[in-house]
Amino acid sequence: MLFGSTISNNLKWELNIDTIVKKVQQRLHFLRRLRAFGLTTQIMLTFCRSPIESVLTFSITVWFGYTTVKEKLRLNRVVKTASRIMGRDLPSLELYQQRLLGRVILISHDSSHPPHDLFNLLPFSRLFRSIKTRTNRFSTSFPPSRTSIVKTKVIFLPSVVHT
């Protein structure tokens, strides 16, 4: 276990996904109980955001990029279960990219942050420079993959200025 996230010795995140799914399924029981008591959707949404979403998104910027399609389907399945219980649509794990964008913006604004130099804006542009990688493992790590994901999103953020 690494700071609340579980990683196996072969650097796979399967154990972490298993742990997350088990924790969320336990919390879904309480969401079902809230529905049985006839509470409003707003109260159930508040409950969903507190103990359920926090478990799903804990260190998501670290592990989500490495998950397989099967693992992403398992995670989205518990989100769909929660939305069925509540009777309203919940966002799937799309918030992963929102969290990445926020993390990249924070790092690019903080010149004392260690990977600050990895997030350089192109001259006369609001696009981040891509990082060249030689290995697939490094290309899916945080800085290289996040600059390519965030490229199209940063164009619309006027507050992102390289200092």
Rank of each mutant, 00 (worst) to 15 (best):
Q42Y: 12
V78A: 06
F119C: 01
Q97M: 11
C48F: 14
L118N: 06
E94F: 10
L45N: 05
L73H: 14
L101M: 15
V78M: 05
P91R: 09
F64H: 06
H116L: 04
H109R: 12
R77E: 04
L75R: 00
L106V: 09
R84E: 11
K80T: 06
L75F: 03
V69F: 04
A36Q: 00
S112Y: 08
F119S: 04
H109I: 13
G87A: 01
E53Q: 15
S54A: 07
F37G: 00
P51A: 05
T46L: 14
K72Y: 00
L75W: 02
V78K: 00
I52W: 02
Q98W: 02
T57H: 08
E94H: 06
L90M: 13
T67N: 07
R77Y: 01
S59V: 02
L39S: 03
Q98M: 14
L45H: 07
R35G: 08
A36H: 07
Q42N: 05
K80S: 10
V55T: 12
H113R: 05
D89A: 13
P51S: 08
Q42W: 11
P115D: 11
R103D: 10
G65P: 02
Y96K: 09
D117R: 10
F58D: 12
L101T: 05
V104H: 00
V62H: 03
H109C: 06
P51F: 04
L90I: 00
T81A: 05
L100A: 04
G102E: 14
R103F: 11
S92F: 09
E71L: 05
E53V: 13
F58A: 11
F37Q: 12
Q98V: 11
D117A: 11
F37A: 13
F64M: 15
R49T: 12
H109D: 02
P51I: 15
V55Q: 12
M86S: 06
R77N: 04
R84A: 08
T40V: 05
W63S: 12
G102P: 02
G38E: 01
R103Q: 10
R49K: 14
R99D: 13
G102D: 15
L90R: 04
F58C: 05
I107W: 03
S112A: 07
G38M: 01
L56W: 03
